[in-house]
Simulated assay, not measured.
Amino acid sequence: MTRSQSRQAIPTKLSEAQFEQFVLPHLSRGRRGPPPTLPLCRIFNYILQVLYMGCQWKMLPIETNAQGLPEIHPTRIYRMMRRWQADGSIDRVFSGTVDHLHRDQLLDLSVIHGDGTTTAAKKGGDNLGYSGHKHLKGDKVVAFCDRGCNIIAPFVTAPGNRNESPLLREALPRLTAMARAIGADLQGSTVSLDGVYDCRANRRAIFNRGMNPNIPKNPRGRKTPKRGRRQRFDAALFEERFRTIERVFGWEDTFRRLLLRFERISDVHYAFKTLAYTLINLRHYCRN
């Protein structure tokens, strides 16, 4: 990762030209009824404003029209966001950013870094569990990024009480599916993971997809070393994780809506998280 890439700011709103290039081709539009009085770009930027500010929908600062009235009601913005979440538009926008990065040769898939992150939930909701390790009730996701801090695959979600290790085997098919969709070749790539993912099933799942695992040994309370051939491990690549995937999670925390989960419906929370990862990928093209 170059010095200029590491200092790129994460966009929090899109211009009309950026919206038409990266977002509009993937959004669904109503087939019946009158067209919306407000452009879709303005509605989408209101959703991004909620994501960045972390405010309630009713507290969203709405601009006024010529009559001095709010140009749109927050309920309409929420309903539009729920419709785009339900029909897969938000997921398609994220996949489109990965495709743009690949076509512009901005992806470095020689090393893929993965990790999980847990978000505390304060208001309850679905897909939650108590994490004894984190001492909080919430949910967790497992995500992958390349060496340039670009998220390259849809994340896998689970309650907070789930172990992260089995989630890797659910996330790998999404990674390979995304690679096939954009025409990328993952053969020979190195998958760098934390020691919590150290198990035979995970290593086999990575090997079967033509990739090489880079996972430190997890002793799991053993008093003597495990017998057998020593697994390959590159400590330099493992330390690179803290400049990539941990940096991505730090960028994610800039969006206040994701610091704590106040959404009772998990699909809404994951839609916001997908939008945040989309904006992280768009930092190469969009400058505030």
Rank of each mutant, 00 (worst) to 15 (best):
R180C: 10
P216F: 00
S28M: 05
P74D: 02
M1T: 15
R162K: 13
I151V: 14
H26A: 11
K58T: 12
Q56W: 01
T274I: 06
Y46H: 08
N208M: 11
M80T: 15
T157D: 15
I43L: 09
T274S: 01
S95Q: 15
V268Y: 00
D198F: 01
A86N: 11
G96L: 01
L24F: 07
I206L: 13
R241I: 00
Y277P: 01
T75I: 01
T176H: 02
D87M: 03
R227W: 07
L237S: 07
R169Q: 12
A201K: 15
E240W: 03
N45M: 12
R31V: 01
M53P: 09
P35W: 02
N150I: 10
L136H: 12
L193C: 08
F233T: 05
N65I: 02
S110H: 05
A171P: 04
G138V: 04
H113C: 14
I47P: 00
E164C: 10
F249D: 04
C145M: 10
E63F: 12
E164L: 10
T244L: 09
R31H: 09
L175R: 13
Q5Y: 07
D234M: 08
P11D: 13
V98K: 08
Y130S: 02
R32W: 13
S131G: 07
R32P: 00
L136C: 08
R31D: 04
